[in-house]
Amino acid sequence: MTAVAAKYQEFQKLGVEILAMSVDSVFVHKIWQEEELSKMIDGGVPYPMLSDAGGKVGEIFGVYDEEAGVDIRGRFIIDPDGVVQAMEVLTPPVGRNVVELFRQVQAFQQVRESKGTEATPSGWKPGESTLKPGPDLVGKVWEVWKP
């Protein structure tokens, strides 16, 4: 939560909105924000904290754990057309990697900007060369990219 909040300005520069969601009520969100989050991050978490009472939304996103009654750690990158471009789901004890999330958003934005003419190889970062899939590239990826 606060790891994403710490990078919030950078996400905003990419035109990305963050939405966080758990089964807790907005009242509990408010107390958590005031009692703890605001002490980890100046002003508290800047993005909306949504309440998914009963896990109805988590259920359709495939992250609701009925036994525990909670939404597990699922993260979805949704593009401006509302299309899900990426998802990552972790069980509760392991936290996410915000740096990797940020990289993936940049990669999906690069692909979208190229109108699908470019693909980004493994571990691609902005400034590195992309691949241009097409007949000429078949069997020749080794010429332009190595792990």
Binding site: E17, L19, S22, F61, R73, R75, I78, V94
Partner: peptide, 26 residues
């Protein structure tokens, strides 16, 4: 307290993060 609808964000990139609960540790 606000009502938020995902489709209001059409035209923007959205990262939707579910998490197990307030006051958890990770």
């Amino acid at each position: 307290f606000k009502q938020i609808k995902l489709s209001e964000y059409l035209g923007k990139w959205v990262v939707l993060c579910f998490y197990p609960g307030d006051f958890t540790f990770v």
